[in-house]
């Protein structure tokens, strides 16, 4: 890619990552959540892969690592959802409303789901670029 694209991606990449993580972390307060936030993080990684090549993008996260983290997060999600369904009465949410630390089960599931969406889409993008 030429200089303009490289410079733009170099400047925009941290802000795209920051905005995606913000959307994931504030999923229980503002519109958004794990799916849009994870997709935004993957858009940043895809921009790096398109502008600088796959070698530079794999320095952020490798495809094999993404596989392992994705499977781990999927098992965590299954465990958490089943736990949350059967132990509704035990989990009394604490904290004041509109604070970041308010709805614990929604926050935890958003974070785990966001990491899983990010890793799954990263695997898809890397594999399709490699092909």
């Amino acid at each position: 890619m030429d200089v303009i694209v490289k410079t733009t991606v170099k400047g925009l990449f941290p802000f795209i990552l920051l905005f995606g993580v913000y959307i994931i972390l504030h999923g229980h307060l503002t519109p958004g959540g794990s799916f849009p936030g994870g997709t935004m993080v993957v858009v940043g990684i895809t921009l790096v892969a398109l502008a600088f090549g796959l070698r530079k993008a794999e320095r952020i996260i490798k495809e094999e690592t993404a596989h392992i983290i994705e499977g781990t997060m999927a098992s965590f999600l299954i465990f958490l959802v089943i736990f949350e369904t059967f132990f509704r009465s035990v989990l009394t949410p604490s904290g004041t409303i509109f604070n970041l630390w308010s709805a614990q089960q929604v926050l935890l599931l958003n974070v785990f789901g966001g990491i899983m969406v990010t890793m799954a889409l990263t695997v898809i993008v890397f594999l399709l670029i490699k092909e």
């Binding site: 999923g27 229980h28 409303i97 709805a103 929604v106």
Partner: peptide, 10 residues
């Protein structure tokens, strides 16, 4: 029940 400000998220 969920203490979450976002009804859609809850």
């Amino acid at each position: 029940e969920t203490n979450s400000a976002n009804v859609v998220g809850s």
